[in-house]
Amino acid sequence: MAAIVLGGSAGGTEALKAVLGGLDPRLPQAVLVCCHTGSETVELLCEMLGHVSQLPVIEAGEREPVRGGVVQVAPAGYHLLVERDFHFTLSADPRVNLSRPSIDVLFASAAAAWRNALIGVVLSGANADGAEGMWELRRLGGCAIVQSPDSALARVMPQAAIDRAGADHCVPLDAIAPLLNRLCLP
């Protein structure tokens, strides 16, 4: 199985809507989302993303298996990690980059689990979370897509990812979903 991991913060919800709304429903990959919302739950986020996405959107559950063709969102207040046997693990460890869930934590564990069968996407955000994770992901052979900072509501996060890790694709928001469909479907 292969996977796509997406991370965003300020402006991330809007960006996620645009990306998930454009994903082909035949996509076999697991889609994992880490978005800093500041809310106590991701119930609303899942609902909102579920309205635009043709793939089902659910909250990732502790020790549930990762599911292909499903968007799975990191719960609020916990880091989301992927085990090597493709089950989720949650962690209440301290915040990373002032964030929990942290994009770095998700990306790093996903990179170790999927290696070159992983695509990472860093979207709009106002802090540098995700940059280290993207670096780790590329180091282990994953493919890095970054929303072009000019097309982001908040450019800090995509810019930090590019500065730290570089990118295989740096494209405007509306080009990300078509790119993912092209990379993921035969």
């Binding site: 990690l81 085990e83 090597r84 693990t89 962690s91 460890d93 934590v105 564990s109 170790a112």
Partner: peptide
């Protein structure tokens, strides 16, 4: 212990 979080620690 769950390996992913143990490795992180």
């Amino acid at each position: 212990y769950a390996p992913a979080s143990l490795l992180r620690r």
